[in-house]
Every structure is written in C-alpha cells, then in structure tokens.
C-alpha cells in the first residue's frame, strides 16, 4: 500500500554517483526551483500538500522523471487542483487574464526576506507528550495515513512495525498527515526514534542505527 517515493531500503537502484553534484546541472533546473518557490509564496498550498503532489505522480512517471521534472509535474497538478490555473491554460501554454491572487505575487525585493524568514513548524498547542527520551516505542504497521486512504504520511514503510528508542523530543510539530490534506495543522509531539539496523533489515553491524523523526500518533509504547 505504499507509494513509489517511499523507497528506503529498496533493492536494485545501483551505485550512487558522487560526481552528480552541481547545484543546478541545467539552467531549467534553477528556473524550476524558482518557479516552484515563487508559486508556493501565493499561499494556496503548504509544504506537506506539495510533497504529497509529488508522491501522487504515477509510479511510472515518478521513476522516469528527473528530480525537477517531478517538481514541475506536481506544480502543474497543484495549480489546477487549487484552482489557480485552468486545464485550458495549461494546454494552451498561456494564461488568460490577471488572477485575483496577483496581489500576492512574490516581488523581487521581497525574495531575500521570504527565504531568510523561513516558516517554522513548531506549535505550542500540540497534544501532551506521551513519551520521554529513553522510552521504547513501536511504530504503526502498516505505514499509512489514518485520516485519508492513500494519503500523505511521513512514516516510511521500512520502519513500520519496528521497535526503537526515543533519542530526542522535538516538541509539537505540524502533523503532515493532516496538513497535507488541508485538514488542519493538528500539531503533535515529534520525536527522533533510533532503531537498530539489525531490527530493520535483519542484518547490519552491531551498534549501527537508523534514526527517524516520527509523530506521536505513529507510536505506541513497546
């Protein structure tokens, strides 16, 4: 029931290519990043729903698209889904008429402030923390969104049903499984949970660990 982006632990991808390390290998990569950030500044979606838009690409598209092609495809889908651009405009390659959101367009002199301003995800109104550093916890299995069938979640499949130890408490954070579907921020305590590599993969050196940031509702006391 996982989606194609959830690839941690997958076999068959071959060697990593450290030489592929340019900031922008092509001019259009830079343009794709900039268009995506500028469109995001219109405030019609959030970081979780934009990630989910990439995850909703058909597996065959996700696999064949390069990184920024995924961004462009997801941006086009988001623009139509949120009613910012019409299917006709996409097909024509031209916009018809000024948008009522035009007043929100990111202007050049505001870019530095927006990028350095950030967008914090910590919330004070999260539910009370159930766990403390050192507690043993077991993750939900299967890894799924409990609010929306097939919806966005940040629990990778490879860590579903695994038992680990809380190593950091990050405080209350916006909950992607809800926020990604515009169902509210629904902040929950977020924890860094360390899993022994052997518990995840059945092999691995003694002492090797994988640490994931996981929201409280993904976890039960072990």
């Amino acid at each position: 029931m996982s989606r194609v982006h959830d690839m941690g632990g997958r076999f068959g991808d071959g060697a990593v290519t450290p030489g592929d390390d340019a900031t922008f290998a092509e001019d259009w990569h830079a343009r794709a990043l900039a268009v995506t950030l500028a469109a995001g500044a219109l405030g019609q979606w959030n970081i979780d729903s934009s990630r989910h838009a990439r995850e909703l690409l058909a597996p065959k598209d996700y696999s064949r698209f390069s990184y920024y092609e995924k961004w462009m495809a997801a941006l086009a889908d988001l623009l139509v889904e949120r009613g910012v651009v019409s299917r006709e405009e996409l097909a024509a390659g031209h916009g018809t008429g000024r948008s009522e959101l035009a007043g929100r367009a990111l202007q050049a002199d505001k870019v530095a402030g927006v990028l350095s301003g950030g967008s914090p995800y910590v919330r004070e109104d999260a539910e009370a923390a159930r766990f403390r550093v050192g507690d043993r916890v077991t993750t939900r299995r299967p890894a799924r969104n409990a609010l929306v069938d097939g919806g966005h979640t940040r629990l990778p499949s490879y860590a579903a049903g695994a038992t680990g130890t809380i190593v950091l408490c990050h405080g209350g954070h916006v909950f992607p499984d809800s926020n990604g579907h515009y169902l509210g921020e629904a902040a929950q305590p977020l924890y860094a949970v360390a899993f022994a590599a052997r518990d995840l993969w059945g092999e691995g050196a003694e002492g090797d660990e994988v640490v994931l940031d996981l929201w409280q509702s993904y976890l039960e006391p072990a």
Partner: peptide
C-alpha cells in the same frame, strides 16, 4: 514545461 508554467503564471500576474 518550465517555460510554459513560467509564461502562464507571469501572464496571470502570479509571478515576477
């Protein structure tokens, strides 16, 4: 694709 999106959004006044 990038060019088309940039053109559409610019024409609609949504990006500068």
């Amino acid at each position: 694709r990038v060019k088309a999106l940039e053109t559409i959004l610019t024409e609609k006044g949504l990006i500068d």
